[in-house]
Nucleic acid binder design. Structure first.
Lengths: 208, 208, 208, 208
DNA sequence: CATGAATGAGAGTTCATTCAT
DNA sequence: AATGAATGAACTCTCATTCAT
């Protein structure tokens, strides 16, 4: 009954990780403090002790998620080999990261469908940085006359939106083929294949 | 108090239309029955009288929205001129419809980020039909050797996902340029331009 | 959809009979106007049209029930043959009537457990008349030196209470023997046997 | 607001005791959570915190009531002096207990008039145990050739039903004599007298 | 740090009752 | 006489949040 862990860091981490899953699975409103507390074996009051309130926890969760994705993509891309390489890295890294952390796309879509109502500034920043990164790659490609006719925002959406949908629709796509077999929903396409496919298509789009 | 409509059809329509806006703006949980009732000048109990419960209303809203988009896209596309024409129609119609009814993309994204937890069968069906339509167009294009290397699900996501994101991120994109001017977020691109851009990119992608 | 019976008497009777069953089965509060209306295929508003409000309907139901039991017992007993005969008639008639109309005991017990909160005057009267009838029989028996040591109220309760419990506990008694076979709950005793048993015991009690 | 008890046991007890009175006085449906909360100076949410829902509270109340009566009757009777003594004890203890806790009979009658719809298993058990106790006494009396012609269930009803009615009808009986003075409703009979009267009558019934 | 008790402000839902036709 | 639409006042239950220990 008395966990008495007395390990602030551990407790905080447990809360963040558990609630990330719950928030992404059930959404912000449908996730209750009680539920989170029970799921991580922590007293409910600790959530408020550490994160002030539910919105604060949500913010922390989003920041955590975005920071990590951002770190990953940035770090992998920081070499600036060549716009095409960089582009490939961007797509693959994002795709694989999302696959490993499938709650992220759900969180993002949810936030976007909310026009960023809860979206705290840090998250907003993170998303902008991600886009800024792609923007830079594309701009560099244009400068080198590799890419043509570039509308970065739309290209960004085509990459990120597709990957997000691919991940969040997985259960639906399964259900779909169960109903109508000959509808090819790419259900068992693996992520690497998809990332590659997208990369090739984007290449075509950019006139490479 | 003032209207005393006593017109079931009108009352039901008012409820559906109002709550569609509210649901898409604030989400399912954050939209209260009180709010809906007040917003359409109808007694709260009428919501339950007509739709049994909140989930029932939500289902009705989703069905309504999807039915109408589906009808629109289908009807505009029913001529089957030529795969390329059909493709263009598909993209343009979807894009313009979403622009006119900007709550729809938000509703869709929200549902998807939920893996269709609330998503009633009719909605699921509607979404499948939309995809089936694009699938057919693409398949026909392949048969006529116009399109090559087609993965319909991914193409679908590239079209629909991009348009959805474009619409739902509008407020964010505005906020973004206010902060960092030289980041081109395509804020004042109009929908027709975007649809066209997407169409041209998809054409390239399909090897046309 | 349009029943349009336009037969006031029939409609009223349907309402009374149906709601008697519902009230006795589920109790006053747990029985809704909607339920009654649906159960008798009558428009809900008619209930209020004919009985003013729910309490009014309940009153009508109770009156109806009590009137009929009272009529039955009185009429059977009106001959005044002999105190013992009269007593036997009283017990048997009441028991058999209750068996034929098993909702009555439930209604009575419920009312009593409410200390007659809803109990309208007419019902109160009816109950008093029933007791008055037994009182008279017992008094006559005493006068004829047949009965001795009579406390009419308690005798009344011993008769009426036992019969009421016997009927209302039927389902419980069944459940009970299913659990513990050798507990004799008189489950398949028929009413006539019970009435007779009670009569004989009351005779003993009265010193006959 | 004033007490800040922070004493779970005390709070739970307050809720149980208060709601027992309210349930027995007004019935299950007519007793609201608000009312209970206010009556015991406890926040309404505590009811649900401790008892999950209204039905849970009701169950707890019934269990509590029955446990205590059962304990009392059993403990007073555990000596097994002599069937007749035991019988007298059974009747007297039950009668006096009910008089001290007059909500119990009302609760019981209400439950019975409901055929035990809410009646949770524990209550059902308790009632059975009470009857089992009387059954044993009667059986022993038969074995010792003291009692004859015993139908335990009916005898049980005659005892328990009479006492229950005597208590629950008290207000009605008062009202009755106010109307018709010469109707002897045993209004000021005290409980001991009644218990004694019943015992003597039961003795006669059993052929003692 | 950690816990369980306590709180208050709703939220969804129900329902008797009335109104207009 | 009959109907379906409409209403408002409850009522149960939930939940973020705070308090006392």
């Amino acid at each position: 009954m008395q966990k008495k862990t007395r390990d602030a860091q551990a407790t905080k981490a447990k809360i963040i990780n558990t609630s990330m899953i719950l928030f992404s699975t059930n959404g912000y409103d449908a996730t209750t403090a009680d539920e989170i507390a029970k799921a991580c074996g922590v007293n409910k009051a600790m959530i408020f002790y550490y994160y002030k309130n539910k919105a604060g926890l949500y913010g922390a969760v989003l920041s955590h998620a975005l920071e990590s994705i951002h770190d990953e993509v940035i770090s992998k891309d920081k070499e600036y080999l060549h716009p095409l390489e960089d582009l490939k890295n961007f797509i693959t890294t994002y795709a694989l990261y999302c696959e490993k952390n499938p709650y992220l796309p759900a969180l993002l879509l949810r936030e976007l469908s909310n026009s960023g109502a809860y979206l705290p500034d840090m998250m907003f920043d993170s998303m902008r940085k991600l886009f800024a990164l792609l923007s830079k790659i594309l701009k560099e490609g244009e400068k080198q006359k590799l890419f043509s006719n570039v509308e970065p925002m739309i290209i960004h959406f085509m990459i990120v939106g597709t990957i997000n949908l691919f991940i969040t629709t997985k259960p639906l796509r399964k259900k779909s083929i169960e109903i109508e077999e000959d509808l090819n929903t790419c259900y068992d396409c693996d992520m690497e294949y998809v990332a590659d496919y997208i990369f090739n298509k984007v290449k075509l789009m950019l006139g490479v």
